[in-house]
Design a protein around this nucleic acid. Structure first.
Length: 257
DNA sequence: CGGCATGTTTCGCC
DNA sequence: AGGCGAAACATGCC
């Protein structure tokens, strides 16, 4: 989500430009909107938004939605706002370009490219986002408490569920649980309102700082410290690795309860 | 080579 | 009906 916000900021200056070219480089990556070229070329960009992990480009025609999966990056004018993804491929291989778009006005011309080695991302026009919960950047404690309260799954699983709250990925959830001192394996249903307040406070503190620092891998629980036995950033106790909701989870048994 | 990886969808089972 | 867990997807890296 932080990465998508960085991408959004990197293309905000295209608002007002018109789409002059669309290239569905990888047929499968673009298979949900095979008519994207016909429908987008000539449209004027009205806004660039984000909801959760989805980048939304509003035009006077359709809204273009880009999803980046685990390894997708947006490259704008040959540069990406996100230099390296923690588990992405290294460097930029032109073979990984899955989609490209050019936007321009009288003075400026912008080249957008999506590079996605694993091809887990996709493109869509006029996406249905009704299945997504409120965005994690702005969610309030009362709303989050209501949405978590009915779930019996682990806190971590619930926070990763985009229909509960949109935008949190594996690394962000571990960071937030660690900062909030919550055991990520606890049932979401067991959270008290003080626990939910702590989770929201952790998001409010961590998200802007990590955005400034460059992304989801730049928390106090950095990508490098995601190893069993590495010291907890809060108290130095050895971190434990478990699997929750099918994802690798690093947490501190000494202070997360 | 085997195993793992910032994610989402699908399927089968309660 | 809908929550839940596991598998599937695809590719690169250690």
């Amino acid at each position: 989500m932080l990465e998508v916000e960085l991408y959004r900021r990197s293309v905000l200056a295209t608002v007002g430009q018109r789409v002059t070219a669309v290239d569905l480089v990888d047929q499968r990556w673009c298979s949900r909107a095979p008519d994207a070229e016909e429908r987008l070329v000539g449209c004027r960009i009205h806004d660039v938004r984000r909801h959760g992990k989805v980048l939304l480009v509003d035009t006077d025609g359709p809204t273009l939605a880009l999803r980046f999966g685990m390894t997708g990056r947006l490259v704008v004018g040959g540069e990406s706002a996100v230099r390296d993804l923690a588990y992405g491929a290294h460097g930029d291989d032109p073979r990984w370009t899955r989609f490209a778009l050019t936007s321009a006005d009288g003075r400026r011309r912008t080249r957008w490219e999506v590079s996605d080695p694993r091809r887990l991302g996709w493109l869509e026009l006029d996406p249905d986002l009704s299945g997504l919960g409120p965005d994690a950047w702005t969610v309030d404690a009362a709303s989050l408490a209501r949405r978590l309260g009915s779930r019996s799954v682990a806190v971590k699983t619930a926070l990763l569920d985009q229909s509960v709250v949109a935008g949190l990925g594996n690394m962000l959830v571990d960071e937030i649980a660690l900062r909030a001192s919550i055991d990520p394996a606890r049932s979401a249903r067991s959270l008290t309102s003080a626990d939910v307040d702590a989770l929201v406070a952790a998001m409010t503190e961590a998200l802007p700082v990590m955005l400034e620092a460059g992304g989801s891998h730049r928390g106090t629980l950095s990508a490098e410290s995601r190893r069993a036995g590495s010291p907890c950033p809060q108290d130095g106790a050895p971190l434990e690795r478990t699997v929750i909701g099918g994802r690798a989870t690093y947490w501190c048994p000494a202070h997360q309860r």
